[in-house]
Amino acid sequence: MERSIENIWKEGFLKSDALIAPKINDLYAQKSIHIIDKFTRMFRINLKAIVVFSFVFLLISYLVGIPIMGIIFFVTLMVLVVINRSLLKSLETIDKGENSYEYLKKFNHWINKQVEINKRIAMFLYPISFMSIILGLWFKDAEGMFLGERLVNKIMIQFPEIDLLFGIPTLGIAIVLLILGLLAFFSGRIYMWDLNLVYGRVFNKMKELMSDLETLNN
């Protein structure tokens, strides 16, 4: 007679070796491999690195005479840090002792929220970073005048017929605007591509789990 799965289960676990717990040493000192803890660690490290980098960059920008670049970078990155700190706090409130549906829903919601927010930030961050480089170099002191003005003067000598807008070559403005547009357009996609490369499996798995649980709930 075929055994039922219930019997296989019960009888199998009656054997003495079936439920031997692995030996664990110094558990609390172990590095957690849980995805939430990994996100938390990654976020903390990233935020600290951004803060340190923005201060160092601000200092260097003053020393090399491009403070505008440093200030714009600093302010932009600080906004990024503040926003992501609040995201980090909400991640830490997810209770692993809730029922699986609520737990996964909250985690999934957090993932979607952080992706959406950071995608939007990326759309501004890249163009702002590029603009800060342009402005920083433009307003850099070059022997008593701005580097940008000096460059325009040189261009005017070589190409006296060139069109100017607010004293800047129109072609230059067009190129900068085009790059800004491209950066804004592609930055969200670059961010998603980068994210999917690292966390694509997590996102897919979350989708599968949620869809299965939603089916059970309906």
Binding site: H34, I35, I36, K96, G97, Y103
Partner: peptide, 25 residues
């Protein structure tokens, strides 16, 4: 976070299950 609304064993099930479902190794 255990609030004794359920039994400790149920809570252990929940934690175990939630961790297994979202563990990335």
């Amino acid at each position: 976070n255990f609030r004794a609304e359920s039994e400790w064993s149920t809570w252990v099930y929940r934690i175990s299950l939630n961790v297994c479902l979202t563990l990335l190794k």
